[in-house]
Nucleic acid binder design. Structure first.
Length: 307
DNA sequence: CTGACTTGACCGCCTAA
DNA sequence: TTAGGCGGTCAAGTCAG
């Protein structure tokens, strides 16, 4: 990306609006924190505040998403890359590789590796310590060793690519061993009409903006057995090789990783910048039922916007 | 038998010379 | 301008349910 990202936004006025939205979100989050710390039983007020926070974030996201996701996607990638670089500053190896490949570091290398060879589809990334079903039906169509990457990249397309012409694809690549870290990059959005059931979160026919929710699945509450892991057991695209990685990851659950995943309404960028997620870090576990009510997610103990 | 995965081959974009 | 490198995709063979 050329230049810093704010300069790429449409207008200064829009930046002000975004800033205002973020400020409002922070303010509301602070109110919520005060409210919850008083441990009053005013669940209705708390719920209203949560809804306001979500709306504020959604508005911001919709603005970030204004240019086909290109800007937002790049921003998210940069933010993620930056934060992962910061996180990885303690460790060597793969994380450094992922930092090198981002635009954050000024290290000059073959410009070929910076170029996105793909057609300009909407993209967004997710760095997660485990592989979890994202609610879509994926079919693996390739695997390739990438130059200077220690682990191969796995290519997935929508199962209904040919049935319904769905162009969504994703790439999954392990980027770090300890702690395990997988980078999933989504390209395009699902146009298929299939609604997946079971443990998968169905977001069909909902307003993607209004439902943009970042969920953090706390692996400390997961079982050791993969078979009992509903997300993993339903992840039909993963076979032995990746599952081995998952097992290794689960055995490290004592480290209490927080598995950050999107409830991924297509056509939007759902992962929030860290600063935005901070605004919601005040949500206490005692209000998870509140979140359940909003999200209708009943399987995991999770924290919204957890950092 | 059918659907999914594996993997080598191929295609096309991009860079360096 | 072009040859070579590289990432992304295809498709035949294989496997599993």
């Amino acid at each position: 990306m050329e230049g810093s990202w704010p300069e790429n936004l449409a207008t200064i006025n829009q930046k002000k609006v975004i800033n205002d939205e973020l400020m409002e979100g922070r303010e509301i989050a602070n109110k919520l924190r005060s409210l919850l710390s008083n441990s009053g039983d005013d669940s209705k007020s708390a719920k209203d505040l949560v809804i306001k926070i979500m709306k504020s974030f959604s508005n911001t996201l919709s603005m970030l998403n204004v240019k086909e996701g290109d800007i937002a996607g790049s921003m998210i990638s940069q933010i993620q890359a930056h934060s992962s670089c910061l996180d990885a500053s303690k460790s060597e190896g793969d994380s450094q590789e992922s930092c090198r490949s981002s635009n954050i570091t000024p290290i000059k290398k073959d410009r070929r590796s910076f170029h996105n060879r793909r057609r300009p589809l909407q993209t967004w990334q997710s760095d997660t310590p485990t592989l979890i079903d994202d609610g879509q039906a994926w079919r693996k169509y390739g695997q390739k060793v990438i130059l200077q990457a220690e682990y191969p990249r796995h290519y997935f397309r929508c199962t209904y690519k040919y049935d319904q012409g769905c162009k969504a694809t994703k790439q999954v690549q392990r980027i770090q061993v300890n702690p395990p870290l997988y980078r999933t990059t989504y390209f395009g959005h699902h146009t298929c009409k299939i609604i997946h059931k079971g443990h998968e979160v169905v977001m069909e026919d909902t307003n993607p903006i209004e439902t943009s929710i970042f969920i953090s699945f706390d692996s400390s509450n997961l079982t050791n057995k993969q078979d009992q892991h509903p997300f993993l057991s339903s992840f039909s695209s993963i076979k032995d090789e990746l599952k081995e990685d998952i097992k290794k990851c689960d055995t490290n659950k004592n480290q209490s990783y927080s598995c950050d995943y999107f409830v991924s309404p297509d056509s939007m960028v759902t992962q929030l910048p860290k600063s935005m997620m901070e605004l919601s870090s005040t949500l206490e576990s005692k209000n998870k039922d509140l979140i359940y009510e909003i999200m209708e997610c009943d399987d995991f103990s999770f924290n919204m916007f957890q950092i």
